[in-house]
C-alpha cells in the first residue's frame, strides 16, 4: 500500500462516527424455513454516514466520485443531489448521504476497516416492537427524506435513526430474496414467520427489489464492526 492511502485512511478513521456496542441476541428471519440466527455482540455506527463523511471518502478514493464510478457499480442516480464530484448539497453536510449503491457503501465501510451490518445484525439492533407506530408513520409519509442525522430517536443501544429517517443497506441484502420473490403472491404469505409484522415485511419487500448497483433517494447506510 502506498503512503498517501495509509495517510488518508488514518485521517478518515480519526473522524469516523462513534461505534456503539450491540449485545448478542437472536434474530428470527422473515422466512419460516430459515433457521433462527444467533448474532454475536458487535458494534454499529451511532448514526448513518453523512454527506460530510462521504465527501472525505470520495476525496481519498477518487474512483468512487460521481463522474468516475462505472454504471456496473452505481446507477445514473448515484449521488444525484450532489452538485458535482466534491460538492454535497447545500447546507446538508449533516444529512445522511443517500443515492449510494451497495457496492460503494460496502467499499466505504471496508475503507474504514469495517463492514456493512448483516441483515441479522441490523434487524437485531433495530428490533423495537414499541416503535411500530413511528416506523409505519415514516413508511407511509410520502416524499424524499430531508432531515439531519440524529433527528429522530436513539434506541436502547444509543443508536440513532434506525427507523424514521432513511432506509439503510445491509451486507447480505439479497440473502432472502429467493424466498421473498415467492412471497409476493398471497399463497406463499404462509411462508413468513410473522405475517402481522408489517414493518419487517416492508423492509424485505424493499431489499428484494434492489440490485447492488441501485441507488435510492431515501436510502443510505452505516457501518458495523465485528468484535
Amino acid at each position: 500500500m502506498n503512503y498517501p492511502m495509509v495517510f488518508f485512511i488514518c485521517q478518515v478513521l480519526t473522524v469516523a462516527t462513534e461505534l456503539m456496542p450491540v449485545a448478542e441476541g437472536v434474530y428470527v428471519p422473515f422466512a419460516k424455513e430459515m433457521p433462527e440466527q444467533k448474532v454475536e455482540s458487535f458494534q454499529m455506527q451511532k448514526h448513518a454516514v453523512t454527506n460530510e463523511d462521504f465527501l472525505r471518502f470520495v476525496q481519498s478514493a477518487p474512483k468512487y466520485r460521481r463522474s468516475k464510478v462505472p454504471n456496473l457499480m452505481a446507477d445514473q442516480n448515484y449521488l444525484r443531489d450532489w452538485t458535482d464530484d466534491l460538492t454535497p448539497p447545500d447546507a446538508k453536510e449533516h444529512h445522511p448521504v443517500t443515492n449510494v449503491s451497495w457496492y460503494v457503501a460496502n467499499a466505504y465501510c471496508r475503507h474504514l476497516g469495517m463492514e456493512l451490518p448483516t441483515t441479522a445484525q441490523w434487524e437485531l439492533a433495530a428490533s423495537a416492537k414499541d416503535y411500530e407506530k413511528q416506523i409505519l408513520d415514516w413508511y407511509s409519509a410520502p416524499g424524499a427524506s430531508d432531515s439531519l442525522v440524529m433527528s429522530t430517536f436513539a434506541n436502547v443501544f444509543g443508536i440513532w435513526d434506525l427507523h424514521g429517517l432513511i432506509w439503510e443497506w445491509v451486507l447480505d441484502f439479497d440473502s432472502e430474496a429467493p424466498v421473498q420473490a415467492e412471497a409476493f403472491c398471497g399463497a406463499s404469505a404462509g411462508g413468513t414467520a410473522d405475517v402481522s409484522n408489517y414493518t419487517a415485511f416492508i423492509r424485505y419487500g424493499l431489499r428484494s427489489s434492489l440490485k447492488a448497483n441501485y441507488t435510492v433517494r431515501n436510502m443510505g447506510f452505516r457501518c458495523a464492526q465485528n468484535e
Partner: peptide, 25 residues
C-alpha cells in the same frame, strides 16, 4: 424516486406467474 417502498403490478389479464408481479418489482 421519492417513493419510500418498491411497487409492482399484477395484471389479472396477463397469463404467467404472478401476472407480472415478480417481473415488475
Amino acid at each position: 424516486p421519492d417513493s419510500k417502498v418498491p411497487h409492482n403490478i399484477d395484471l389479472h389479464a396477463a397469463t404467467g406467474p404472478g401476472g407480472g408481479a415478480a417481473a415488475s418489482l
